[in-house]
Simulated assay, not measured.
Amino acid sequence: MPGILLIAAGKGERYRAAGGKGEKLMAPLSAHHGRPLFSVVLETAIASQLPIHIVTRPDNIPIIQLAADNGIAVTLLNSQSMGESIAAGVKATDDWDGWLIQPADMPEITVRDYHRIVQALQHSSQARLYWQEQPGHPVGFSQQWRDALCQLCNEEGAKNVINHSLLRLNGHPGVVIDRDFPEE
């Protein structure tokens, strides 16, 4: 079965440069009753009932603690890029049939979004949600892409591995919304 690879290893530099305080993934979201961003994302991933693995930085204690509290495995990595984070997560979950790559700063992703990607991977080796021609997340890869994903090392993440002619699914605005900046 494919699983969700939550990428939470960024440094939050854009967030802090825009005036954000503290750890971006622990910032409260007003639309979610002030709950921390990562808590909202993790809760949705857990509700999907798919396997979950988190890639985060060794100093990101709140994320590590939330993972431990929920019995979720973590790869600790002083990541220099999205690609490096994805590669580490894929290597750590070698027994999965596929991966749903999900940045951990996207709280509008739904359980249905995860399930649509899993279903699509039954018929295609890749699947991706789009909103109005904008590529979104999660992005799904079958096991056949394992070696290519394990070679990633740049900030472009899996962009060089994505075959845009493979399955594209219509999504909703939330599949393209991340939280790189503090709420106003």
Rank of each mutant, 00 (worst) to 15 (best):
E108I: 00
A127N: 09
A127T: 05
A92F: 05
D178A: 04
N78T: 05
I177M: 10
Q144C: 03
A158I: 00
A158Q: 11
G20E: 08
I63D: 05
A27D: 07
Y15T: 09
S85Q: 11
L77G: 11
E108W: 09
P138Y: 01
Q144P: 04
G136N: 08
Q119K: 15
V41K: 14
S39R: 11
R16Y: 02
G98L: 12
H53L: 15
H32R: 15
D94L: 06
S48H: 06
V40E: 12
C153P: 00
L76S: 11
R128V: 00
D180L: 11
W145Y: 13
D69K: 15
E133K: 15
W96S: 10
L25F: 07
Q132L: 12
V176M: 04
K24N: 07
Q144Y: 01
G10C: 13
D69W: 06
I109Q: 10
N170M: 06
L166G: 02
V40Q: 13
E183L: 04
N170T: 04
Q65V: 12
S81K: 09
S48N: 08
A27Y: 01
I177Q: 12
I109W: 07
L6T: 01
G98I: 09
V74F: 01
L167A: 07
L29H: 13
L169T: 08
L37G: 05
D95H: 15
I46E: 00
G34V: 02
E184M: 03
I162E: 06
S79K: 11
G19Q: 15
K24V: 08
A47L: 01
P173L: 11
A8Y: 00
A17F: 02
N60R: 14
Y15A: 08
D178P: 01
H123Y: 08
K21C: 01
Q151M: 15
A127E: 05
G171Y: 12
P107K: 11
P173D: 02
D105H: 03
W96R: 14
K91E: 07
D178I: 00
G22K: 12
P173F: 10
W99L: 06
H137R: 14
P135N: 08
P173I: 07
L5A: 11
D147H: 12
W131F: 06
N78L: 08
N170E: 09
H115D: 07
A104H: 12
F38H: 04
E23T: 01
F38L: 11
L29N: 10
I4K: 13
A17K: 15
A31S: 10
L29F: 09
I4G: 09
L100H: 12
K91T: 02
N170G: 03
K91C: 03
A104D: 10
A87W: 08
I177F: 04
Q102K: 14
K11Q: 13
Q143V: 02
L166E: 15
H123C: 06
N160S: 06
L66N: 13
I46S: 00
A148M: 07
Q144W: 01
S30M: 10
R179V: 10
I86L: 03
L42G: 04
L166W: 08
L169G: 11
L167V: 01
E23N: 09
D113L: 03
P182A: 02
E184D: 07
A120T: 01
L169F: 03
V41A: 11
A127Q: 08
I109H: 10
E23M: 07
I63E: 05
L25Y: 07
P182I: 00
Q119M: 03
K91V: 00
E156Y: 03
G10A: 12
P182N: 12
L76Q: 15
